[in-house]
Design a binder for these strands. Structure first.
Lengths: 338, 338
DNA sequence: ACAAAATGGTATCGATGAAAGATATTGCTG
DNA sequence: CAGCAATATCTTTCATCGATACCATTTTGT
């Protein structure tokens, strides 16, 4: 690989001069600078990232925590989309991405240790066990960190606006005449918590009753479990007319299961999901859901991280909340019962 | 961060001794070695990857080409799964992963340049424009490279067994009594080519006619287009009794569209996909498809790459072909027509 | 002649590895 | 068995990877 030395030799100057020329120092004559920059391009020079990192402690590399013990992670379209967006935005700004995990080969290490080992400039947490010790260590370290969908003290977060999402969704269902609305939610997390709390609030505001059996815990992407619960719901003496599922995956599966068991969806029972999967909009009936704006979330996270990296001083902790939008779909229809 | 120097000071030895102790050289007394290793653990030492890379030219980092101009890439479950598998397997062997792209910030660079810039030990190509100049450059360079689903001269490839896949699929359809089988295939690529060629072969072997209109080009994941073609197929004077779609995504969407237009699927027209998406198995009717073994493909690629990195000498080019398996599903049923 | 502008010299980041140094052990001769 | 070289064992010194940054030096301008 061509190094600064090669350029220096080719131009008959010192390595120091080359370094300064390429890094825009002001104490090199415009003339020399031009010659050197020209030569650098000609020779196809790229700085050796390892050498630069060693000296400057900047790698232009960002760590991404995306651990999928829970079967989420890359396989989950939502997270994959977040990653995609973060990646492309950071790329535009000259940063690369490396996955961070606990342990390389024999070596066990924590996220934080891994980050130090790779000398990353910052960290994006896309999905992880937020309550783990390892995460605790990571969010109390000196590195710039941006977290998706979870809030840590004094840390930057990018959050999907679940409050608005659930509100819009329930309101939409309500506007279609539904009064008996059940919510099968995912396993515990900030996201779930926000959604459930908001669900209660909005139902309350709309003056609707929530029988205890109408709020049920399942898990994200666990179609069987969500369906088992849906079936129970529909066998209640006073069954709901609309069921909100934890996510689009379970909602799509749920619709299918219910139809198979002889329920008319959406006429007998309406169904909604959450996420905005592409597939949900090409299946019939189109799924009513909240599309999360992963594109914007990724961008915001990338910019927030860049900002933290460039200005570690103004560490004003804050949350950025990104609105999603309702996709009306066809899986919730006017309810005429009662 | 704690460096070798810190350990050296703490143990009262030289840095070189520390280096050797931690790297398993034989010319350090077992005693000293033990003390140093103990201290290293105690202080939480990790080698600085940049420094090591600079000196040894090994980064324990692998580049991944995963470019999704075509809307595939991360958003495509197949590629996401491949990545997931490669990632976890490389991780087990102490290697990290970094995405490779063309250009960082202002700097335009080719895949190859990016790889050199990051000093990666090897490259995995998950998806890319295989015909591009950039890929040409990458596969003729000195770096170890493993490519998924495409073959380059003298390069290692891991291929999904599309030949067996299509054969099994068509045979299954045939066994169910179908004789008029249409194939809507994806856009041109080695994969598509193999599938189409195999389709012709097996149909031939089974003594079945393929009217020209029965083989149609669409695109992967383009539900609208695939459907438009499906509709045309079914309006033919002599319509097929079974339609093979490019992938599960289009197949699922297709089934839904067809039903909406009044066709009974799978009774009037059977449908099959290709991929093995999870969702396809929780929707009714369960999709008949070929599940590609991304898990194994990723593992094989990772091991092949490791091998190339460790033994650049025995560069015996070869292809590893990984079998998928038929998921019978319910979207292909016995055909009694004619 | 002196300040300003341009360029070069050199230590440094953290780890590695070749070669030299230090110490202990063995072998051999007289 | 002493005496000394030869060997083995362990450890340190030092140059190095490529880029950067501080300081020194040279050149230019007024």
């Amino acid at each position: 690989m061509v190094s600064m030395k090669d350029i220096a030799v080719a131009c008959g100057v010192s390595v120091a001069t080359v370094s300064k020329s390429l890094n825009g120092y002001s104490d090199i004559s415009a003339e020399t600078k031009a010659v050197i920059q020209q030569k650098a391009k000609e020779l196809g020079y790229f700085p050796n990232s390892a050498a630069r990192a060693l000296k400057t402690n900047r790698t232009y590399n960002v760590g991404v925590v995306m651990t999928d013990d829970s079967g989420s992670g890359l396989a989950h379209e939502y997270f994959a989309n977040l990653l995609q967006s973060v990646r492309s935005e950071l790329e535009k700004n000259g940063l690369d991405i490396t996955f961070v995990n606990h342990g390389l080969g024999e070596q066990k290490m924590t996220y934080y240790e891994h980050c130090k080992y790779r000398c990353v400039d910052g960290v994006v947490v896309a999905c992880a066990d937020f309550e783990s010790e390892e995460m605790e260590e990571l969010v109390t370290c000196e590195l710039p960190v941006v977290v998706f969908d979870h809030v840590y003290p004094d840390r930057m977060s990018v959050l999907s606006d679940n409050k608005k999402g659930i509100t819009d969704l329930v309101q939409h269902v309500y506007n279609n005449g539904h009064r008996k609305i059940a919510y099968i939610h995912g396993e515990y997390s900030l996201v779930t918590n926000t959604r459930v709390t908001t669900f209660r609030e909005i139902m309350n505001r709309l003056g609707l009753d929530i029988p205890r059996e109408y709020i049920r815990e399942a898990a994200y992407r666990d179609a069987e479990r969500a369906h088992a619960i849906a079936r129970e719901l529909l066998q209640l003496p006073d069954p709901p007319t609309c069921i909100l599922y934890p996510d689009d995956f379970t909602a799509l599966a749920g619709m299918s299961y219910l139809r198979q068991e002889g329920y008319n969806v959406p006429e007998d029972v309406s169904v909604a999901g959450y996420d905005g999967l592409v597939l949900g909009q090409v299946l019939y009936p189109k799924l009513t859901t909240i599309a999360q704006d992963t594109e914007r979330m990724g961008k915001e996270a990338a910019h927030a991280l860049l900002d933290l990296i460039e200005h570690p001083d103004r560490q004003k902790a804050k949350q950025v909340i990104i609105k999603g939008h309702l996709i009306e779909g066809e899986s919730v229809v006017r309810c005429n019962k009662r």
